[in-house]
Every structure is written in structure tokens, then in C-alpha cells.
Computed example of a mutant assay.
Amino acid sequence: MRPPTPQPPRRPSRPGRGRGRASSSASERRKTPTAPRRSPAGQHSTHQRSSEEPDPASRRALVVARRERQRRRSRSRILYGATFVVAIALIVVGLRFWGFHPGFALPLTGDTTATPSPAAAEAAAESHAASPTAAPSSTSSASPTPSASTLPAPRLDAEGFAHSDAVGDGTWTIAPAVPVSRPAAGIVYRYILQVEGGTHVDATAAASIVESTLNDERGWPTAQNTSFEPVADPAAADFTFNIATPPTSDALCSPLDTGGMWSCRNANNVVINSDRWNWGAVPYPDVDSYRTYVTNHEVGHFLGHEHEFCAGAGLKAPLMAQQSHDIAGGCVYNAWPTQDNQPG
């Protein structure tokens, strides 16, 4: 009998791998990602901040920047508004100072009645300044208006200026075209003369005074080689010479402030206040010489001359100086452009 063959010893058995049991081997352990912890409400824990959520400091900086932009915009609006208001105020004051305003101009019509109508106007008005004294000088070639003796007694103000308180009756009388007293010189300007009802001014008498003044050799014919021809047809006239009551003079000169006392040139209208035509002005010794002055002065504005100033005490004032209220600089009165700044 063969002896039994010895069997190799068996290896010890390994722990069984039963189903549902995890391997204890370190090499076979699987690492599983750790889920973020959640709060009891199922949200991410607040100690884990999202990278997309802005920092509170940045949020505050944005709010501050937004408020600063709003303040800048508010300041800019206030600054622009104030600048605009100041600019408008300066423009208005400047226009009023220099006398460039739109105003009323009398239309050149053939009717004997007329009312002021709005029109753009660049006017040169008589304004007034300085000492009320004046020494006598030359006399006018004009003669008194025949109706002067029928004038009502005027009301005198504290400075000695006469006022009638007359109000126009709405009618206008166009004066006849009187013959020209001198041969025409250089450029000839044609004009009509019309007088408002209620002024106590005779249109025919005034026409002779104005024509002889404008064509006098001491006046614009010599100073500017210009002469003037009165006409009766408004369509043929270059300008209108108006003698009007104080309220109508103010309306025709508006927006220049003539204060019920003064005369002006407004566009193609020379406007003479009837109180000044009838009673003159304090700086002048008589009515006739003042009529010469105011006629030449306002027509001088029509010719394009601006205001001038006294060249020295004792000299005759330039015709284009303002002489109706007083005469500045110590000059004496002067009604003729050829005698400007001559010894008084």
C-alpha cells in the first residue's frame, strides 16, 4: 500500500467579502466629495461667501459715488440757471443803457389821422445831465410861432420846466410843402412835417421854422453837405418830423423813456415834444434858439450822429451833446453843428 502523498498546507483563509460590507483595505477605499454643509433651512452656511456677491465696502462706495454724482448734477443745474439769469439781466441793462430797443414808429401814411404802430427801432433819444446854467450865445434864424400868444398858461415844475398836461385828440395835420429857402446841397433828404391835434402848434408856421433851420448855412448843409426838402406826399419822404403832445411823444419814442418831457429820433421818425416846442428848456434863454437846437439835434441822429461831450469849460457845446435838461462839463449852449467847441 502506497503511503499517502503529503498535501501542501493551506493558506489561512481571508476574511470574507460579503455583499453589503465595505472593504477594509486602504487601497480600495474610495474618496467621495464632501457636500457643502447646509443650514437647517436647506441653505448654504453663511460662513461660505459666494465669489459673485459684492463686498459691503464696495456697495457703500457705489452708494457714495452715486450720491456725489447727483449732487454735482444739482450744482451744475443751479450754476447754469444762475448764469442764464445774470446774462439776461446784463443784456437788458446794457440795451437800456445804450438805448437800443424795439419801439413804436409812426407809419408814413397820407391820412391826416394816424396812430402809433409797433415797429423795430434803433433810436437815439435826448437824455440829460449836469449843471442847469448856460451862457447866452448865438440866436436862431427862426421866428416865433404865431399861435404862441394863444397858448394856455403852463404848469411849472420845481426846475422851471413848463408843462401843458395836453393830450392829443387823435388827429394829425400834414403841413404844406413850403418852398426851399436855399439851393440844394449834396445829398437831399425829403421829409413831411405833421402836427398832432391838441398841441396848440400851427402846422404851417412850424413848417417854415423847420425848413429854414434845416437849410441854414450854419447847419447840416455846411457841416455835412446835406440839404432838406419838405414834401406833402408821405410816400416820397425819407423821414417824418412829428410835433406831438407829451403822451403821444412818449408812445412814439417808446421804449426810450422820454418821461413826458423830451424829444427823440426813433427809426425814420423825428419826434418833438410839443411842450418843449412851445416853451423851450431851462438851459436855453429863449424858445426860438431851443427850437433850433432840438430840430438840428434830433435830425442829426437821423443822419447817423451819436451823442458827443463838452470839450472844455467855456466852449460851445457840440450840437450833439445833450442840452435839453442841462449842459455838462461847463460848456455853453449851442444850436448849430458848425459851431461845435468854439469859444463861447
Rank of each mutant, 00 (worst) to 15 (best):
T292W: 01
R265T: 06
L193G: 00
V332R: 11
L252H: 02
P285T: 12
A35G: 05
T5N: 12
S140W: 04
I243N: 00
D340Q: 08
A328D: 15
S23L: 06
S289I: 15
W262P: 02
V287N: 10
P136L: 12
Y80P: 07
R190W: 01
A223P: 07
N266G: 05
V85G: 12
E211Y: 00
Y191R: 01
A184Q: 10
P3L: 13
L62C: 11
P176A: 02
S149M: 09
T109C: 02
R49W: 05
D288A: 15
S164V: 07
C253A: 10
R19F: 12
R182F: 04
L319P: 02
M261Q: 14
V195A: 05
C253K: 01
R30I: 10
R190H: 05
G81K: 08
F100D: 06
C331W: 05
A223N: 14
R182D: 11
V85F: 12
P146L: 04
I88F: 06
A148R: 09
T34S: 07
G170S: 05
A22H: 12
I187P: 07
P36Q: 07
D202P: 08
A87E: 06
C310A: 13
S263R: 00
E229G: 02
S324W: 03
A142R: 00
S138F: 12
W279L: 05
S147P: 10
A321P: 09
R66D: 13
G170M: 03
T115L: 06
G103V: 02
R155A: 14
F239E: 01
T171D: 11
A311D: 15
F228G: 01
V93D: 05
I88A: 11
W336H: 14
